Computed example of a mutant assay.
Amino acid sequence: MITSIFEKTKPVNFIILLVFLFLFYWSVQFYLLDFALDDIEIVPSLGILSLLLFSVFIVDFVVKRNKLTRTNSFAILFFTLLFVVFPETLIDNKAIFTSFFLLLAMRRLLSIKSLKNIKLKIFDAGLWICISSIFYEWALLYLLLVFAAIFIYEPKNIRNWLVIISVGFCFFMILYGILVLLDKPSFIQNHYDFAIDYDAILPLKWWSSLKMSLFAIVNMGLAFSTFINLNKAGMGKVIVMRLIAFSFVIGLVVNVLVTSDNNNAVMITFFPSVVFIVNYLESIKKPKILELVLIASIVVPIIVFVTKL
């Protein structure tokens, strides 16, 4: 039954998932965090929630436009379910903003494969990444993904590499101008200090987070399975999947660097994770097994969340 609903792209799928995410967001605020209505600023919260819901459409657009999966709604289903697995990420507004702008950057970055307007796409992707760094300074590491895309698609054109410099200059000038108007010019120096909490990244502490560790291990296994199944696919899709895998690795690194006792930044890894999950599901040939996997993927996270309430 679940397979029949989400194996095709239908407007009702968006309605179901958006309503669920809307209700789940407020459940986290009121029940998991035990906030009172007076503790929540309604207008800013609605703005952040709108950004979160719009992210679902961006994920669906990027997946469909770049043919990262088949024509189904599994991507937005699992993008929504990952919030149930990691409800704490909805507490961190910075994670929501960062993830949103990184999705916009990924949209432009993956479109470079068409080899049209490459410089414009590099500029857009770099600018979105720079904007995301306003919330998490370590998000600038995603610029490595831009360098990787240039190296793969058109490395001999020196102007492509110079675009990154122009992006940094434009972003700095605009940001500094805004900060001067707001009388907060010290923000750049204070925010972009790239301080590392070494106690937070010790292996023993990292592996003590069982859920995050399992998430990383499972996705690495799914990525390995995806690349094995892509042997018969065109080289173009293999390259795109390599970029997505690289973005997941960068996301894990950023998640470690910006967190200490929590994993709120894990949301920035949801998109590549979703791509790997759906590609694995599409490799399952038996409908009954696929149905059981989907049911378990929905029921188990919800049960775990309910037990926390």
Rank of each mutant, 00 (worst) to 15 (best):
Ile250Cys: 04
Leu68Ile: 13
Ile188Asn: 10
Ile48Gln: 07
Arg107Phe: 10
Leu141Arg: 04
Ile188Phe: 10
Glu137Ala: 08
Val56His: 11
Pro301Glu: 03
Leu120His: 10
Lys285Leu: 11
Gly251Met: 09
Phe97Lys: 03
Ile134Cys: 12
Val253Lys: 02
Leu210Gly: 05
Leu109Val: 09
Gly221Trp: 08
Thr71Cys: 08
Gln189Pro: 07
Lys8His: 14
Gly236Gln: 11
Ile277Lys: 05
Cys130Met: 12
Lys64Arg: 14
Ile76Gly: 05
Gln189Tyr: 12
Glu154His: 05
Leu252Tyr: 00
Asp261Ala: 09
Asn263Thr: 02
Leu18Gln: 07
Glu137Ser: 10
Lys94Arg: 15
Ile174Met: 09
Leu109Met: 14
Phe24Pro: 02
Ser209Arg: 09
Val278Phe: 03
Ser132Val: 00
Glu7Met: 12
Ile295Ser: 09
Val19Tyr: 05
Val63Ser: 12
Phe101Pro: 00
Ser225Pro: 06
Ser283Phe: 02
Leu82Gly: 01
Leu81Arg: 01
Phe171Trp: 09
Asn229Val: 10
Asn231Leu: 10
Asn66Pro: 04
Ile228Glu: 08
Ile284Ser: 05
Val293Ser: 04
Ser209Asn: 15
Val275Leu: 02
Glu282Lys: 07
Lys64Cys: 02
Thr71Ser: 12
Val28Trp: 01
Met212Ser: 08
Leu127Asp: 04
Val306Leu: 08
Ile158Arg: 15
Leu210Val: 11
Ile112Ser: 11
Val56Arg: 13
Leu141Val: 04
Lys119Arg: 15
Ile48Met: 11
Pro11Gln: 04
Asn263Pro: 00
Thr3Glu: 11
Asp38Arg: 15
Ser273Trp: 02
Val293Lys: 04
Asn13Arg: 00
Asn66Arg: 14
Phe169Tyr: 11
Arg70Glu: 13
Ile129Arg: 01
Phe227Ser: 08
Lys205Ile: 03
Gly251Lys: 01
Asn279Asp: 03
Thr69Asn: 07
Tyr192Glu: 12
Phe86Asn: 00
Val299Trp: 00
Cys170Gln: 11
Cys130Arg: 08
Gln29Trp: 01
Asp193His: 10
Thr80Gln: 04
Trp207Tyr: 15
Ile122His: 02
Trp26Tyr: 03
Tyr25Asn: 15
Ala216Phe: 04
Asn231Pro: 07
Leu33Lys: 08
Val258Glu: 04
Val258His: 04
Val63Gln: 07
Leu23Asp: 06
Glu41Trp: 14
Pro287Glu: 11
Leu18Trp: 12
Val163Glu: 03
Phe187Leu: 01
Ile40Glu: 06
Val218Arg: 05
Leu127Val: 08
Ser166Val: 08
Phe54Asn: 09
Ile201Trp: 04
Leu252Ile: 14
Ser186Thr: 15
Phe24Tyr: 06
Asp199Val: 10
Ile250Asn: 00
Val146Gln: 09
Met173Val: 14
Val163Met: 06
Ile217Arg: 03
Phe61Thr: 06
Ile164Asp: 03
Asp38Pro: 13
Ile277Cys: 02
Leu182Ser: 13
Ser166Leu: 07
Phe79Glu: 01
Leu175Glu: 10
Leu127Arg: 01
Lys184Pro: 08
Asn255Trp: 07
Val300Gln: 04
Leu181Glu: 03
Ile188His: 14
Ala148His: 09
Trp128Arg: 05
Asn66Met: 13
Val293Gly: 02
Asn219Arg: 01
Asp183Gln: 14
Met267Gln: 02
Leu37Thr: 12
